[in-house]
């Protein structure tokens, strides 16, 4: 039975997702998640969300997808132990070494290899499974045929980010922003009030993605500027191709967007709930009016 896994950047968004039919939600934890401090939950907020979700038989994952610096790794590993005590259902991490270390330290913990691990072929799937990942997240740019091959790899859950931004550079393979600029207002390091892991943009801690790939660039051919343009990127929504993905053996339908407000999360989740339920009932999936959502529904808003 496919699982609908939905982002929540606040308690209100989590509640909206649960009310709209999410089987599971994933949240950021203050100080430990990519994307900066916005859209992360404090410890009490996460505990509230866990209670609310578990009361309805739903699961909660914590996106701990900052890659820590050497000295910070112990803090992250200890924090995971704390989360297990709170009843977390799984964590999402972004580094092969962390997958192996967490598996060794917490044998029963649910571990997902983040989309930042850049799993793009079936050998990648098997690699992360062998390290101890229970699940891998694939980008929605892969074809159903590719995903069907991945689903043949035994012993690992296949998640596909069906609603996401396909950026100019692959997620997990970009360090353009930090080439240009480091965050000038570095937050406090972990261990102090309001502290966080001091990672780079790729690592997701202190670094901020300046969205440079969404700004106009001048393209020079030799010494001549030939055009000023935006770099290619697009919002992907597989809502009208969901049956192909589910038939390919996808276990988890995942949506991107911890930045989405509750009033945007709810209709998005309802659409995917409707489509998944139709597929499970063996009925034709409803044809949605647009394959891409309205601009206001997209993470990039364009």
């Amino acid at each position: 039975m496919p699982v609908l896994l939905v982002p929540a950047g606040s308690r209100a968004a989590a509640q909206a997702a649960l009310d709209a039919g999410a089987d599971a939600i994933y949240v950021g934890l203050k100080g430990f998640s990519r994307g900066g401090s916005r859209n992360e939950l404090t410890a009490p907020e996460l505990q509230d969300v866990l209670v609310a979700a578990h009361a309805q038989g739903r699961h909660v994952q914590a996106a701990l997808n900052t890659i820590p610096r050497q000295a910070e790794r112990r803090d992250l590993v200890e924090k995971v132990g704390e989360l297990i005590g709170w009843g977390i259902d799984g964590v999402i991490v972004n580094d092969a070494g962390l997958v192996a270390e967490l598996r060794s330290r917490y044998p029963r913990l649910g571990i997902t290899a983040s989309i930042g691990c850049v799993v793009m072929n079936e050998a990648d799937v098997a690699f992360y499974r062998d390290l101890g990942a229970d699940a891998v997240v694939l980008p929605g740019t892969l074809t159903p045929d590719e995903i069907a091959a991945f689903a043949q790899v035994p012993g690992v859950v296949i998640e596909v980010m069906v609603h996401m931004v396909d950026e100019f550079i692959l997620l997990g393979r970009c360090w353009m922003p930090s080439y240009y600029q480091m965050n000038q207002a570095l937050p406090a390091p972990l261990g102090s009030s309001g502290g966080r892991l001091l990672g780079s943009v790729k690592r997701g801690g202190a670094g901020v993605c300046f969205k440079i790939c969404e700004q106009p660039w001048e393209l020079y051919r030799g010494v001549r500027c030939v055009v000023t343009r935006l770099l290619p990127s697009r919002q992907i929504s597989a809502i009208n191709h969901l049956a192909d993905l589910l038939n390919a053996g996808v276990d988890v339908i995942k949506l991107q967007g911890r930045s989405l407000a509750p009033d945007l999360v709810a209709p998005l989740v309802r659409r995917y709930r409707l489509a998944i339920d139709a597929w499970m009932a063996g009925e034709p999936l409803p044809a949605f009016a647009e394959s891409c959502l309205e601009p206001s529904w997209t993470v990039m808003r364009r």
Binding site: I67, P68, Q70, R73, D95, A96, G97, L98, A100, E101, V118, V119, M120, N121, E122, A123, D124, V125, A126, F127, Y128, D130, G172, R173, K202, R203
Partner: peptide
Amino acid sequence: NLGVLKIVHEAHPDLAVHIGGFANVYTDVG
């Protein structure tokens, strides 16, 4: 690519492998 690493290691376990910059080695555990 880490999947390629797995393939290479299984097929040629004695082959010397250099890990490239895109493999995202950020930590000692990695």
